[in-house]
Amino acid sequence: MMKRRRFRQSRTLNERPADEAARLRKEARALRPGHDREMLLRRARQDETAIQIEAWLKSPGLRPPT
Rank of each mutant, 00 (worst) to 15 (best):
L62Y: 09
L13S: 14
G34E: 00
L40Y: 03
R37Y: 06
T49A: 15
Q52Y: 09
R63H: 07
R32C: 08
M2D: 13
S59P: 01
Q9W: 13
A44M: 00
A22P: 03
P33Y: 00
M1I: 10
K3P: 10
R43C: 03
R4P: 03
A55M: 05
Q52W: 06
I51S: 07
R5A: 11
R45Q: 09
E38P: 04
D36G: 13
L24I: 01
R32Y: 13
P17H: 03
M2R: 14
P60Y: 10
L41I: 04
R43M: 04
L31R: 15
Q52F: 04
R45T: 06
L24T: 00
R4E: 09
E54Q: 15
H35I: 10
L57A: 11
P65D: 00
P65A: 10
R29K: 15
P60D: 11
A21E: 00
W56T: 04
T49M: 10
R8L: 11
E20M: 00
T49Q: 09
Q46M: 10
K26S: 12
A44G: 02
R5G: 04
K58T: 07
M39L: 14
R37I: 02
H35T: 12
L31M: 15
M39N: 11
N14M: 09
R63E: 13
A18W: 00
A55R: 15
E38N: 15
M1F: 12
K26G: 08
R43T: 02
R37A: 08
D19L: 14
E20F: 02
P33A: 01
R45Y: 04
A55Q: 14
T12E: 02
K26Q: 14
R11C: 05
R25K: 12
A21C: 02
K26R: 14
S59D: 08
R45M: 06
R43S: 03
I51L: 15
A30G: 07
P17W: 01
A50W: 05
K58A: 04
F7T: 08
W56H: 08
Q46H: 07
R11D: 05
F7P: 01
A28R: 00
E48M: 13
R32F: 06
H35P: 06
R63T: 06
R6E: 05
I53H: 13
P17V: 00
L40D: 01
R25Y: 00
A22D: 10
T49N: 09
Q46R: 11
P65L: 07
F7V: 15
F7A: 11
L31S: 05
P33Q: 01
E48T: 00
S59G: 14
R16M: 11
R8K: 14
R42C: 08
A21R: 01
D19H: 06
Q52L: 15
D19K: 05
R45W: 01
D19S: 11
S10D: 03
E54K: 12
R63G: 02
E48D: 15
W56K: 12
R37G: 03
Q52V: 12
R42A: 13
R16C: 04
R16K: 13
P65C: 03
E48A: 09
R8S: 06
R63W: 08
A21F: 00
D47Y: 04
L41F: 07
T66M: 05
R16H: 07
P65R: 09
L41C: 08
R5S: 10
R29S: 12
A21G: 03
P33L: 02
K58P: 00
I51Q: 14
L62G: 03
R42K: 12
D36P: 05
A55C: 08
L40N: 02
P60C: 09
R45V: 04
P65G: 03
G61I: 08
